[in-house]
Amino acid sequence: MDTITSGHAAALWVGLNLFLLLTLSLLVVRQRQRHKVALGDGGVPELAQAIRTFGNATEYVPAALVGLAVLAIVEAPPLAIHVAGFVFFVGRVLHAVGLSSSGGTSFPRAIGILMTWIGYVFLGAVLLFYAVA
């Protein structure tokens, strides 16, 4: 059996985050079709919420995916990539669930953003470690 490499670890989390973005995008499309709105949110709160949920993910996910890819390039241990990927991905899922179910504050949304930031800090710290090591 082959060993798991840094590239394999990063591929898992990049793939999962891409499917998360696709899912959130499909939820926007579903709301657009339901309310017959082609552009903008048409003043429909559910559509505005779906757009914002997808938009928030597109603001955070790309930088984390770059971080995971660079960790794979510098051959960081797969465990470090899995920790960063897991914390970040779970944070993004929780945030999306919280934001899509309530426009206000919610427990999943708060925990989700906290985990997202922890994932960012972990990624940044490990990247800086490999930059100077």
Score class of each variant (00 low, 15 high):
4 I>G: 12
45 P>G: 10
83 V>L: 13
122 F>E: 05
51 I>M: 15
69 A>I: 03
2 D>Q: 14
84 A>C: 07
96 A>P: 00
110 A>W: 01
109 R>S: 06
9 A>T: 01
96 A>M: 00
33 Q>D: 10
23 T>H: 14
110 A>V: 03
94 L>A: 09
39 L>N: 13
86 F>Q: 02
61 V>S: 08
82 H>I: 00
38 A>L: 12
39 L>V: 14
33 Q>R: 15
18 L>G: 13
87 V>C: 05
57 A>H: 06
34 R>P: 05
93 V>C: 11
82 H>G: 07
52 R>D: 07
96 A>S: 09
48 A>W: 03
52 R>C: 10
76 A>N: 04
15 G>I: 05
28 V>F: 09
58 T>N: 14
130 Y>H: 15
78 P>E: 05
46 E>S: 15
58 T>I: 10
87 V>F: 01
85 G>F: 00
45 P>E: 15
75 E>T: 05
14 V>R: 11
131 A>W: 07
75 E>V: 06
42 G>E: 10
35 H>E: 14
43 G>S: 09
110 A>M: 07
26 L>E: 10
114 L>Y: 00
29 V>E: 13
2 D>E: 14
87 V>W: 01
106 S>E: 06
29 V>I: 15
9 A>I: 01
122 F>I: 05
54 F>P: 03
93 V>Q: 07
123 L>I: 04
35 H>R: 12
34 R>K: 15
27 L>R: 15
10 A>R: 04
63 A>F: 09
101 S>L: 14
120 Y>V: 11
13 W>K: 07
110 A>S: 08
87 V>M: 03
69 A>W: 02
62 P>G: 12
57 A>R: 04
22 L>C: 08
87 V>A: 05
